[in-house]
């Protein structure tokens, strides 16, 4: 019996879609546009996050200990720093190690020790990382409170830029998605409503011969699902192609951007796009047939 029903629903669902193909096509396109914008935003923010994470791992606060502080007291400082909000990890760099690192950076062309006349001018310092970019600033404020710390150097501008960049990308994306999604749902609703209206008599007769509400609604539901599925598939296709091309361009042309292909995440996004399309289609058709849920 269930199979008999299913056959009819799918038959009628496609029939409905076909009869309204003009407006149905429009709603597929609208939905595809909405979902493509969604897809691009998600992929963009994901990649942005990848960059942020990378930069974040490089965002270090260099806190230089005053020369008057003894080695022992300087080491003791770590206990206080570890208790600070936003603290993630630290590394103590003694002045001896500091000069070695500096020498490494200059390479063999210059003998730092002899140039400096055997004197090491570097103070001991800590390399401190925060739990998140947002916490860099508060952490710095806390560090400034320590009298033993003489000087603090950190990449404030980079942090701020990266943060505002992803913030705006995310919000603009959300705004766009919200607007276009609303339009898509609306169009789907109109499409289904048109089908419902063009079938008002049929629905009436269906009820007279004893059709249940779900029997009446399911073909419309399938019509909505189809629109959602097609819209979702188109959007997923465009997003996939877009990702491939943009990534290729970025990787080949902007050398310093720390970005990698992330296919598992992309496929998850594409799956969500198709799933989201189906969901929106279903939602639209339910909204359009809502009043027929009553006898």
């Amino acid at each position: 019996m269930f199979a008999n029903y299913l056959k009819i629903f799918i038959r009628d669902g496609f029939r409905f879609l076909w009869r309204n193909k003009g407006i149905a096509f429009a709603s597929v396109i609208a939905l595809a546009v909405a979902l493509t914008i969604t897809g691009f935003t998600v992929v963009f923010v994901n990649s942005g996050n990848q960059v942020v994470e990378h930069l974040q791992s490089q965002l270090e606060i260099n806190a230089y200990v005053s020369q008057d502080v003894s080695r022992l007291d300087a080491l003791e400082l770590s206990k206080e720093i570890e208790k600070m909000p936003g603290f993630s990890d630290l590394e103590f760099v003694s002045r001896e190690k500091g000069i070695v690192l500096l020498q490494e950076r200059f390479g063999t062309e210059m003998d730092l020790e002899s140039t400096l006349g055997g004197v090491n001018p570097l103070p001991d310092h800590y390399i401190i990382r925060s739990t998140s970019p947002e916490m860099v600033e508060p952490l710095v404020t806390e560090l400034r409170r320590l009298p033993q710390i003489e000087n603090i150097v950190y990449g404030k501008e980079i942090v701020d830029n990266v943060l505002s960049f992803t913030f705006w990308a995310r919000n603009l994306g959300m705004f766009l998605i919200f607007g276009v999604m609303l339009a898509a749902i609306f169009l789907i609703m109109i499409t289904i409503r048109l089908t419902v209206y063009s079938r008002a008599q049929e629905i009436r007769v269906m009820k007279f011969v004893g059709a249940t509400n779900w029997y009446i609604i399911l073909p419309f539901f399938i019509e909505g699902l189809m629109i959602g599925l097609f819209g979702g598939l188109i959007a997923a296709g465009i997003t996939f192609a877009g990702y491939q091309n943009v990534m290729e361009y970025v990787l080949l042309n902007i050398a310093f951007i720390p970005l990698e292909y992330d296919y598992p995440r992309l496929y998850m996004t594409l799956g969500s796009i198709v799933g989201g399309g189906i969901f929106i289609g279903a939602l639209g058709s339910l909204m359009a047939t809502r009043k027929y849920l009553k006898v």
């Binding site: 019996m1 269930f2 008999n4 029903y5 056959k7 009819i8 007769v205 269906m206 011969v209 004893g210 059709a211 029997y215």
Partner: peptide, 11 residues
Amino acid sequence: AFALEVVGLGQ
């Protein structure tokens, strides 16, 4: 046939 489809009979 319409009235029978509603009831869920086979073709």
